[in-house]
Design a protein around this nucleic acid. Structure first.
Length: 196
DNA sequence: CACAGGATATACT
DNA sequence: GTATATCCTGTGA
């Protein structure tokens, strides 16, 4: 994390996932000396048919039911690790998926891990982001702190657009994908149908 | 730019 | 057997 950016408190995650997702945009996250500014995050809520937790606890999504600020990392398509942070309401399986960051430090190491030169493709997507940061299932179920993840409080008020989530087939109407307007580092552009 | 197809763990029908 | 909170590569407009 860059000098001067105070870490968010534990209470940061004691809110509903759509609030935490919105408030995470503009925050700097860091892991093992690599990181960047969050530009895209999605909320997965209680009684949300698109959420892994919708049908209750399974071995995969078990950590979603831990306390707020628990790390949930799961393997998607048997290939890509995806990073989530658990929120309130406690014990209901609510969480936020970190989908993209704008790289700010440890860029050379992230380029090496990803095998790409283009910084726009380093962390633009949940699978790319974890590969760049070196995050795997090894930290699943840990607290944010125990996992070695740092989240820095944001300075200003970013312009955040709320749009439908990506890659799901249920609850597609909920605008729970939060994106930094104008960012060049999104996993996908903001739909043209969104006002603003 | 838009597809199609492959890789392949976990969960559900 | 089918679907999934994805990414990469190849082909063709």
């Amino acid at each position: 994390m860059s000098p001067g950016a105070r870490p968010v408190g534990r209470a940061f995650f004691d809110r509903a996932p759509e609030v935490v997702a919105e408030q995470l945009i503009g925050c700097e996250i860091s892991y093992g000396g690599c990181g960047g500014v969050v530009v895209e995050a999605e909320a997965y809520g209680q009684r949300d048919p698109a959420s892994h937790s919708f049908r209750g606890e399974t071995p995969r999504c078990r950590s979603m039911f831990g306390p707020p600020a628990t790390v949930y990392v799961y393997l998607l398509y048997g290939l890509h690790w995806c990073l989530n942070l658990v929120t309130e309401p406690r014990g209901t399986g609510a969480a936020v998926l970190i989908r993209a960051i704008e790289p700010t430090h440890g860029v050379d190491e992230m380029r090496a891990r990803r095998g790409v030169d283009d910084d726009r493709l380093l962390c633009a997507g949940p699978g790319r982001l974890t590969q760049a940061l070196g995050i795997t299932g090894a930290v699943d179920g840990m607290s944010l702190r125990a996992a070695g993840l740092q989240v820095g409080r944001r300075r200003g008020e970013p312009d955040v657009a709320r749009v439908p989530r990506i890659g799901i087939s249920r609850a597609t109407d909920l605008p729970w994908r939060m994106v930094a307007r104008g960012s060049r580092y999104l996993s996908r552009p903001i739909p043209r149908s969104i006002p603003g």
